[in-house]
């Protein structure tokens, strides 16, 4: 099953979900790690190049996922607590918006001097805005957004586990198995 139905996810949505989750957590860890590396660490430059390249790829995946999401039926939330559905929906929207803001802020750090971002040596993402101190301001925002997303993703995961163990519904299972 490729496409979603109103009760189950197709494998495209599932793949987007888990691959992007992996990328988000991976980039978060890499980001925290790379800023602590010192000048003489062999990976001082490579870690940043990877973070930037993977970040641009993640942004592309975000866009494709959004297009896919809008062109597919959405599985209806399980359980009958309306406030839970509202919180879940808000969390999902926030995750999308914060990720978008995260991409923009990261992009603005690296391109603040007018240099393009080279993505895995495949193509270049050109610079646009080059404001004074842009790298500092965008850097603070990028950091705060990354932590916000981590906390929100944590809430999202806890909620999924709650659905699985306490409510004993298919919320988590259907994100693992196409057509479930």
């Amino acid at each position: 099953m490729i496409r979603n139905t109103t009760s189950a996810y197709g494998w495209v949505s599932i793949a987007f979900h888990w691959l992007m989750a992996l990328a988000v957590f991976g980039l978060f860890g890499l980001g925290l790690y790379m800023v602590e590396l010192t000048y003489y660490d062999a990976w001082y430059r490579g870690s940043l190049d990877l973070h930037k390249s993977a970040g641009v790829m993640l942004a592309l995946a975000w866009l494709l996922r959004l297009i896919w999401k809008l062109r597919n039926p959405q599985p209806q939330p399980l359980g009958n607590k309306v406030w839970e559905h509202k919180v879940a929906h808000l969390t999902h929207i926030l995750l999308y918006l914060l990720m978008l803001a995260l991409f923009v802020s990261g992009y603005l750090i690296s391109t603040a001097d007018g240099r393009a971002i080279e993505v895995f040596g495949l193509f270049e993402l050109p610079a646009t805005l080059t404001h004074a101190n842009q790298e500092d301001i965008a850097g603070v925002i990028h950091w705060a957004l990354a932590w916000s997303i981590m906390m929100l993703a944590g809430l999202h995961a806890v909620a999924a586990i709650k659905h699985h163990w306490l409510d004993k519904d298919k919320t988590l299972v259907r994100m693992l198995k196409p057509g479930a």
């Binding site: 750090i109 690296s110 603040a112 790298e135």
Partner: peptide, 11 residues
């Protein structure tokens, strides 16, 4: 206002 012509290094 430090400027070494490289945003990441400046940061």
């Amino acid at each position: 206002s430090l400027d070494s012509n490289h945003a990441e290094r400046d940061k």
